[in-house]
Amino acid sequence: MNLLRLDHVVKEYKDKRAVDAVSFGVRTGKIFGLLGPNGAGKTSIIRMITNITRPDAGHIYYEDEPMERHHIENIGYLPEERGLYKKMKVGEQLIYLARIKGMDKQSARTALQAQAEKYEISGWWDKKIEELSKGMQQKIQFIATVVHKPKLLILDEPFTGLDPINTNLIKDDIRQMAADGCTIIFSTHRMEQVEEICEDIVLISDGKNILEGSVDQIKQDLKEYRYTFSYMGEFRPVNAGDILEVKAAEGHGTLRTTSAVGPEYALRKLLDAGNIISGFAEVLPGLNEIFIRTVEKNPALV
């Protein structure tokens, strides 16, 4: 089931169509990657989902109801351009941000204190934001985003400025929240992070949806039928109609077939030629590669 669905959503600015009839669905409880190059329209899409701006055309549905203002209490949003009130104390600020999300003072305090323990920031409760390092501020901001236990969490580049330890802490938290049923939209340029945590993605380029689906499916769809293998002894050349290219040297090799045949065909041909094969694997394209390939292929950009 989709928690969120966009149906031909359009956003226009003075001289530019920033979002051009974009449609996609976000499955409940999944981590969803919203990807695209700079200026593709990701932030415009997020702002419409968070009700900051309204679409000029098209519809957004939350749990199959047209998105309305009251739905935003179920959303936690960590914008890319983020900040906190520098002069306010950590505790006061967190309680304020939780309360404008609809929590009452007491439950906000209880929930925040639990989070503060977890992120080891209890000692900062009475410190002003400006006294903290950038990384510490990031942690506070993340806590502020998730404290009201949103059903939909939107994270725009959440790991910038965080050290590896805190990145992992938050990554684990994101996975745990998804396991607990929270739906997460994760927007980033960092493909290795997408590969690591996202199940579904949509790729936006120049305001258009140019690719969408589950990460595994996309990789299967866009694979180029490449394989790597290891062999022992002398390599014996392979010649077969569906094998397009074979390279081998010093015990390792690569092979490409047509899309008509599968891995078992490639492996059998290697063995049939008399090779001693000690390893064989299919090469699926990385998201990074898919990203670059798809965006460059998209004529709208040129």
């Binding site: 914008p79 900040g83 941000l97």
Partner: peptide, 13 residues
């Protein structure tokens, strides 16, 4: 300038 405004207006009008 602090960029907190986007967080706040995702909660209130």
């Amino acid at each position: 300038i602090n960029r907190i405004v986007e967080v706040v207006i995702s909660s209130v009008k």
